[in-house]
Amino acid sequence: MTHAVEIRDLHKYFGDNEVLKGIDFTVEPGQVVCVIGPSGSGKSTLLRCVNMLEVPTKGQVFINGAELTDPDADIDAARRHVGMVFQQFNLFPHLTALQNVMIAQQRVLGRGKNEAEIIARENLNKVGVAEKCDAYPGQLSGGQQQRVAIARALAMNPDLMLFDEPTSALDPELVGDVLTVMRKLAEEGMTMLVVTHEMGFAREVADRVVFMDGGVIVEDGEPSKVIGNPSHERTRTFLHRVLHPEG
């Protein structure tokens, strides 16, 4: 069986600083994998290596069995199958919500205007912001912006969705709307790799939780095990700090 994502001995340096120190892991089709860990542990860098926004210093990345780290690989073609959602949303501010969801369909997939618009409206409806089609990102709340960003990625019919701390920049009362959309996606069987601090979401939705610290994977397993009954001291310390921030 082909893995949705396979990473072999991945290393990433920023200058002399080794951020990823040999990562091996896989995501199977239909799985939801949450990556947790303290800030600076390399989890966002790992996610960004999966679609080559960061170029790995060493190691291999495969998506659906095709190697992205091959110098001759067509990265742009591979990215069409991988949706990405950013912490800062990164919507295009000069385009309306609808145009944000249409532009890559038209310019990358070559869909006609009508087809792109129908698909865009479907996806905006799915994430619950259909009534905001004609609004510009600056006129939307953070939660609405993030849901438009999810619709923008979904409109490309990805096989895999990457989420880079999708709720970290949101006001607390808006987090729930975004998590609801992500939960719905998971139920539909979307393959998802999610870097998050939302332990509740990880525990309930994830098939697997990966705990990273210091550029390595410390623990990888079912949420009930990694979050519920961690076997490593570093995991326990981290979870204690996240779940009991008051000390």
């Binding site: 679609n51 990215r79 990164n90 890559a104 960003a149």
Partner: peptide, 15 residues
Amino acid sequence: VPKGQMEAARSLGMK
């Protein structure tokens, strides 16, 4: 223009 704009465009498969 923020760096994230280019990243978002590239992640959608744009050259």
